[in-house]
Amino acid sequence: MAHYTPPAQSKLGQIIDVIVLVTLTVGALFAPLWLNLAGAAKTVATPVENPTWEALGQNAVQAGQYEALGYTPESAHDLILARFDYSFTSGALIVMIVVIVAYYALLLKFSESEYREVISEKFGKK
């Protein structure tokens, strides 16, 4: 392969590249938060009125530890009863699998073509 000489990049171009990368990063990581799509929120399915430790499903030892931590049945109500919802659809699972597999396939395919150029220029036809 003939030796490849990369073009010189202007300072402005370098700054723009960094801004693009940082913007994409912040956007990707904060977008789910801003759109309230960040999952894993816990909810209390069945609240207990006038809660007691027994009604919250706590035995004497468990109740004793909560009290040692400064909780009462009322203040510990949401902490004890809130649960995650792990239900999902098969469609969502398939989308996730396709996205992950497609991503790695893209990486390996493009990397291979770039790598062949690198090896060809580094080692020639030896």
Binding site: V20, L21, L24, T25, G27, A28, L29, A31, P32, L37, A38, G39, A40, F84, Y86, F88, A92, L93, V95, M96, V99, I100, A102, Y103, L106, L107, F110
Partner: peptide
């Protein structure tokens, strides 16, 4: 990956979407 999908699937897809875009870039 499946464990992360249970509850944080949106972040997972958003992050991989980000890596796909920057890979093309």
């Amino acid at each position: 990956f499946f464990a992360v999908f249970l509850g944080y699937g949106t972040q997972l897809v958003a992050m991989i979407g980000f890596y796909i875009v920057v890979s093309l870039w």
